[in-house]
């Protein structure tokens, strides 16, 4: 097979795209949220996400998500190797609907909590966190 000038250009374009990876990671997060909501755009509402603004160690970061009335709650990250963190299905004996857990973060980024309410609508909250040490290497 001959290596043409067109092939070289295509390779160059690919390399450019790869250099924009953080950008595509953020859209991976948006894509994962769209899969969760079935394409619906989450609105504002009674959902709160709490975590430290800055941590040294990304291997165990406490996160509290509260969404009273939620049926399902999902947590996402914008720049981890994969956007999903956890998905919680609340049962009839869950009251009020909230979850505190500890998560891993690879770098400074945003965490997004999205909740599905009983009426089928979605709400979200978003928080930034600064991370010094990649929690996936520990």
């Amino acid at each position: 097979m001959k290596f043409t000038r067109r092939d070289a250009l295509t390779l160059g374009l690919g390399a450019t795209a790869a250099s924009l990876l953080p950008f595509s990671a953020a859209s991976a997060c948006e894509d994962a949220i769209a899969v969760f909501t079935g394409g619906q755009e989450p609105g504002e509402g009674d959902i709160s996400l709490r975590l430290p603004a800055s941590v040294k160690d990304g291997s165990s970061v406490p996160v509290l998500a509260e969404a009273p009335g939620a049926v399902v709650l999902a947590l996402f990250t914008t720049h981890n190797p994969a956007p999903q963190i956890a998905t919680v299905h609340f049962g009839p004996l869950s009251e009020p609907q909230s979850l505190l857990t500890r998560i891993r973060l690879s770098r400074s980024q945003d965490i997004v909590a999205v909740a599905r309410l009983a009426d089928g609508s979605y709400i979200r909250d978003r928080k930034s966190v600064k991370v010094t040490v990649n929690g996936f290497n520990i």
Binding site: V61, A82, A86, L93, S94, T101, R102, R104
Partner: peptide, 30 residues
Amino acid sequence: CAFNGARVVDIQLEPAIARNPYFQFSALVP
């Protein structure tokens, strides 16, 4: 987590959950 057969929470975990997974949540006890 279920109480007398009724669901409290059902959580799907991904690798972004930290080592020694910890959860804190509320439950109604009828």
